[in-house]
Amino acid sequence: MDGQGNGRKPLDTAEIGALAHLYRAEIYRSTIWRTRLDTTTNWSVVTLGVALSITFSSPQASPLPLVLVGILIIFFLMLEARRYRYFNVWRARCRWMELNFMAPMLNDGDLRMDTGWQDRLAEDYRRPAYHVSLRTAIGRRIRRNYFWILLIQTAAYLGKLAVHPAALQSFGELLERAAVGPIPGWLVLGVGLLYCFSWGAIALWSLREDRKRARWRRDPLGMG
């Protein structure tokens, strides 16, 4: 029987029942935090939609709302990344129990207590910590949702400069239209390019790290 021969006592019926209730609680918490992720994404979509409506309301309307909405999108992205780090804790615990408790029990009835999976889970409850860095969380959220939000924002801004109030005729005219008050157009476009490049670089970095983590995971007991 599992747990015998390695100094561990096997789980009794009451303990297995308690673990089942713990799994249900973690599922509930992960569901709640998953909903909170959707909320911040919706905020970003709504604010971008408002900025698009204002900017394209008339040919004379300023493209500035599409620039300013970028600040709100950054704020929502950072908030969502923070929420994702919490969600990832509950998700990882659920997946850990599914992989090491539910699946072996369904497969051959052996809880495999000798592998030490329960030690890692217990330690995570004693000393809870994030399983991913903030940068990784930001990159994942960009790849999942914010890539399209940022793409639409950038395309709409460039489209506004290209067609309103009339079709663009020269690069100098583009710089003139991009200017915001005393801020020259080249600086505004340069900051916009840096804005897009930075989020794209973080997304690509996190993709590479996630692939490396999945392929070369050294710790067989790792969570997250």
Results as ranks from 00 to 15, higher is better:
100 N>T: 10
141 R>H: 06
6 N>L: 01
183 I>A: 04
190 G>M: 11
130 Y>R: 05
49 G>D: 12
215 R>C: 06
11 L>Y: 09
164 H>Q: 12
155 A>Q: 01
129 A>F: 00
71 I>F: 15
49 G>N: 14
189 L>R: 04
144 R>V: 09
213 R>K: 14
200 G>R: 10
187 L>P: 00
86 Y>M: 11
165 P>G: 02
40 T>V: 08
127 R>T: 11
92 A>F: 10
80 E>I: 07
149 I>G: 02
94 C>W: 09
130 Y>Q: 10
106 L>E: 10
60 Q>E: 15
16 I>C: 07
38 D>F: 14
59 P>D: 01
35 T>R: 14
156 A>Q: 05
80 E>K: 12
102 M>H: 09
69 V>K: 04
211 R>P: 08
191 V>L: 15
76 F>N: 06
40 T>N: 08
26 E>I: 15
8 R>K: 11
166 A>H: 10
148 W>F: 06
86 Y>H: 11
58 S>W: 07
32 I>Q: 08
4 Q>Y: 14
87 F>A: 05
220 P>V: 06
137 A>F: 02
16 I>R: 13
33 W>C: 06
63 P>V: 07
106 L>T: 03
149 I>L: 10
156 A>E: 08
121 L>W: 09
186 W>N: 01
143 R>K: 03
90 W>G: 00
98 E>Q: 08
161 L>G: 03
145 N>H: 10
80 E>P: 04
107 N>H: 15
119 D>L: 08
89 V>G: 06
74 I>C: 15
77 L>G: 05
201 A>S: 01
76 F>Y: 10
6 N>R: 07
155 A>Y: 04
22 L>D: 08
213 R>M: 09
72 L>D: 14
112 R>P: 01
139 G>Y: 11
165 P>Q: 02
202 I>E: 03
205 W>T: 03
209 E>G: 00
78 M>K: 09
190 G>H: 09
131 H>M: 14
69 V>S: 12
132 V>C: 11
138 I>F: 09
136 T>H: 15
